[in-house]
Design a protein around this nucleic acid. Structure first.
Length: 275
DNA sequence: TAGGGACCTGCC
DNA sequence: GCAGGTCCCT
């Protein structure tokens, strides 16, 4: 189980997955989870990199459990969860630009629609994600007709703002910047708020101390860490306090640590709401 | 800085 | 009513 680039993966049949990452595609047969069978136009190295298979998960978990014992039961629900490391900054960034104020089913539809603006991949029935220059050229009415709603305006607009700043290279350069600087730079774009900036920092730029505070993590943070905030709204200040709370305790693993609470709340929020 | 409303579409 | 928010306005 991994997170970050689920948007480009689909289960084609029981336990069989087709995933796209940049110019690469992977057909994964997970019938035996201990022994994945992978067919791909990339090498094993790319697959291992994408899922950070060369990082010692047990070691990460040891640190997280020690610094955050309250997370132990949540980790037990998803002990194999990893933060993905996608290879395409543009693909990852624009997938997340489809997520705000949205539900997963429609996000997947939108990501699929966006991908059709990219070239076809060879060897598999799927598209490579379009370039940021191509996205910048997409007509708003085109996306409106495809059910993008107000995102039909914001997505090409964000692409144009990125192109103005230097395009894909600008995003790539933010990978070498420190987390806070990258986050600040992303916030200069109209249409990217603190949450999206953190998703991009964590999954596209690989700043693993980034903590995206969405509606689910907000609920979980109030429950576990900030009970005084019950009934309050998520302001910019509280947003930073939650992220800093995770960074103070987990450092570079903050992005890993927060995920267990995110997924738990995603799955169980209706139950929590009643209680 | 805090709070509230609008915003596309579709599922619950 | 609300979803893996952001903008704009008091």
């Amino acid at each position: 189980m991994s997170s970050g680039q689920v948007f480009r993966w689909e289960e084609t049949e029981q336990d069989k997955w087709l995933g796209v990452d940049g110019a690469h595609w992977f057909r994964v047969d997970a019938k035996d989870p201990r022994q994945l069978r992978v067919e791909s136009n990339a090498g094993e190295l790319e697959f291992r990199r994408l899922f950070r298979l060369d990082e010692d998960l047990a070691k990460h978990l040891k640190v997280i459990r020690k610094s955050g014992p309250e997370l132990v039961p949540y980790i037990a629900l998803l002990p194999g969860l990893r933060v993905m490391k996608p290879s395409s900054v543009v693909e990852e960034t624009f997938c997340f630009l489809c997520t705000p104020n949205n539900n997963l089913a429609r996000i997947l539809t939108m990501v699929r629609a966006l991908s059709t603006y990219g070239e076809m991949l060879t060897g598999v029935q799927a598209h490579k994600f379009p370039t940021v220059v191509r996205i910048a050229q997409i007509d708003e009415q085109d996306l409106r007709a495809k059910g993008f709603g107000y995102r039909a305006q914001t997505i090409p607009s964000i692409a144009r703002q990125i192109v103005e700043r230097g395009g894909e290279q600008w995003l790539t350069n933010l990978q070498s910047a420190i987390y806070k600087e990258a986050h600040d730079e992303l916030l200069s774009i109209k249409g990217i708020g603190p949450k999206l900036a953190d998703c991009i920092c964590l999954f596209a730029l690989h700043h693993t101390e980034a903590v995206p505070v969405d509606t689910h993590l907000w609920q979980a943070a109030k429950r576990l860490y900030f009970p005084d905030w019950t009934g309050k709204s998520l302001t910019g200040l509280r947003y930073r306090q939650i992220g800093d709370h995770f960074r103070d305790r987990f450092g570079k693993l903050a992005g890993w640590a927060h995920q267990y609470l995110f997924y738990d709340n995603l799955k169980n929020w209706r139950t929590y709401r009643k209680g």
